[in-house]
Design a protein around this nucleic acid. Structure first.
Length: 227
DNA sequence: TGCCAGGCCGGGT
DNA sequence: ACCCGGCATGGC
């Protein structure tokens, strides 16, 4: 049995189902995916609350709001000038390319996601400020596509348990999972969420030994230069 | 108090 | 092809 399967079971038994993404709409998933870049979710949550309170969480509004004002609203999420521009870039892809000014957000987004996954990924990656993790999060958690999301925690877990080399890049890690797991959106969803859950509690940069971690039985190796 | 957080881009070598 | 600094708030 693949260690990936056993690791999943251990995480699931320890943390239980995560039912990601924490959002009320597909658009909120996409906005959250940008705002959470290298940022604690607590701060992202505040920024999204600001947008909701001011009724700014719609494609039309986000498209027309001045970028400076948007930046002010998402301030708690950090890198706010950068992220405001990135959100505008992403919304422009959805709002203008789909040319559906008369339709609702959900209709526009349904049309957007009704496309080949690989082509969707390319479209998302063409947006300045959307990299592989943000694109894949949007595909999996927003569009329900069978894509495995890799992040810094995933990298740490794989390296610290000797499953992959330190030089592994995003694509190699993604391939590592896809080669060893059945194609299953539900599984991909829970697996990444569980890895993040694990990371927040047990796999931060400074505690490479993870002695209390639910994965301590899976041949953890000491990493001299903590990744 | 410094380090860290669910990255990504652009410039330099 | 790498490597690195910049981006920025809030929690512990």
């Amino acid at each position: 049995m693949s260690p990936l399967r056993e690791i999943y079971t251990a995480l699931y038994d320890h943390f239980g189902p995560q039912n990601w993404w924490p959002a009320d709409s597909v658009l909120e998933v996409m906005v959250g995916a940008v705002l959470t870049q290298n940022t604690n979710w607590r701060n992202v949550s505040r920024a999204i609350d600001n947008l909701k309170q001011d009724h700014l969480l719609s494609l039309n509004t986000l498209h027309h709001i001045p970028v400076e004002l948007l930046a002010e609203k998402i301030r708690p999420s950090g890198y706010y000038n950068l992220k405001a521009a990135r959100l505008k870039n992403l919304v422009r892809l959805l709002y203008e390319e789909e040319q559906n000014s008369g339709e609702s957000d959900s209709e526009i987004l349904n049309v957007f996601f009704a496309d080949d996954t690989a082509r969707l990924r390319d479209k998302l990656l063409s947006v300045k400020g959307v990299g592989p993790e943000t694109a894949d999060s949007i595909l999996l958690y927003g569009g329900g596509k069978p894509v495995f999301v890799i992040d810094a925690y995933t990298y740490r877990v794989l390296v610290r348990h000797g499953l992959i080399g330190e030089e592994a890049d995003y694509g190699e890690m993604q391939e590592f999972f896809l080669d060893r797991l059945d194609e299953d959106v539900r599984l991909y969803n829970e697996y990444h969420a569980l890895l993040v859950c694990l990371g927040k509690e047990f796999c931060k940069k400074r505690n490479p030994l993870c002695e209390q971690c639910p994965l301590r039985e899976f041949e953890p190796i000491y990493v001299e230069d903590p990744v």
